[in-house]
């Protein structure tokens, strides 16, 4: 075997090894300190869909096909869509009422406003951002419509204007950002007749959740959903059953951006690995090919 081939393999191997062993920096959370959030107490929800109505009005969403008063929509499981940023679903997780009938549990779903959102990490242009007040904010003017945020979201929340040919947007709960900035509560929290949605600082909400669970352990599952899920979320849930039985996807505790950002930064901070590879290849070319002029 001729020397250049051995050289080829050796140099290629070196390049790969160099790329794998880059200067890895420990990943750091960019989560805001004590953001605003909401605590949803699933045991208080009566499935009245008023939150859906308020959301529709605040965000100026299109009128739904069936009115918000029509409870028959609860017969099917729904997901948030481009025209409805929050939806209530009804489950029968097994609990019986006083007459021995299966008693329903209602769960509102919307964007969880993660502390370290996968969508924000994924977004090519930074159209999605995590604001200091906790909101995961979408800026349509930067969006190119690649939909990587939808691929990345572990709660499978963002929806898309698939029927707009030129100016579609990613659609999800806005946390009623404008109302928040005016010092008001989000639409859903302010309309809820049973105070199933409590708005406030995340630390306060965590304390409230713990108090409610400890105050009535028979009523609640001993778990605050969103405390650790996906590295923590601004929206928190407590319920009488495991949330997995109420249509919530299984989500790891590790913040989702951690792995991919660690890989990206290990390989490409200061473009060190491309620069090293370029130098290696240029040296190889000079050594093996002699003058670049005699190529042809």
């Amino acid at each position: 075997m001729s020397i250049p081939r051995r050289q080829f393999l050796k140099t290629a191997g070196f390049g790969i090894a160099a790329m794998a062993a880059g200067p890895a920096h420990a990943w750091e959370s960019k989560a805001p300190d004590d953001p605003l959030g909401c605590l949803v107490d699933v045991t208080r929800c009566i499935g009245c869909r008023k939150c859906e109505l308020a959301c529709n009005q605040v965000n100026k969403l299109p009128e739904p096909e069936t009115p918000f008063e029509d409870m028959r929509v609860l017969d099917a499981k729904r997901r948030p869509t481009a025209g409805a940023y929050t939806v209530v679903n009804r489950y029968y997780p097994g609990a019986l009422d006083e007459r021995g009938q299966l008693s329903p549990t209602f769960v509102k779903i919307q964007c969880m406003h993660c502390q370290d959102p996968a969508c924000v990490s994924a977004c090519v242009t930074g159209a999605l951002s995590k604001k200091e007040n906790g909101t995961v904010h979408y800026d349509a003017s930067r969006c190119i419509g690649c939909r990587y945020c939808m691929v990345a979201c572990p709660f499978e929340i963002p929806a898309y204007d698939f029927h707009d040919p030129l100016t579609p947007q990613v659609r999800k709960c806005t946390f009623c950002l404008e109302r928040l900035e005016d010092g008001k509560m989000p639409g859903c929290a302010s309309i809820c007749p049973t105070e199933a949605i409590t708005f406030g600082r995340r630390s306060v909400l965590m304390r409230l959740a713990r108090e409610r669970i400890e105050g009535d352990p028979a009523r609640y599952e001993n778990h605050v959903y969103g405390e650790h899920e996906a590295g923590g979320t601004s929206w928190l849930y407590i319920a009488g059953q495991p949330l997995a039985k109420l249509g919530f996807p299984a989500v790891p505790d590790e913040p989702l951006p951690r792995r991919s950002e660690t890989i990206q930064h290990a390989l490409f901070s200061y473009l060190w690995s491309p620069a090293a590879l370029f130098a290696t290849l240029a040296l190889t070319m000079k050594t093996l090919s002699g003058s670049k002029k005699d190529k042809e």
């Binding site: 990490s121 994924a122 977004c123 090519v124 242009t125 930074g126 159209a127 930067r142 969006c143 190119i144 419509g145 690649c146 939909r147 990587y148 898309y160 204007d161 707009d164 030129l166 100016t167 579609p168 951006p257 991919s260 950002e261 890989i263 990206q264 930064h265 490409f268």
Partner: peptide, 29 residues
């Protein structure tokens, strides 16, 4: 194909000016 697939084809140039170094897709783009 990217031009056709992205919802806002006319905005395909935006990653040149708006960067997110955390995004693998930004680097691919």
């Amino acid at each position: 194909a990217v031009f056709v697939d992205i919802g806002r084809s006319w905005a395909i140039w935006k990653p040149i000016f708006f960067h997110n170094y955390n995004s693998a897709l930004f680097e691919v783009a």
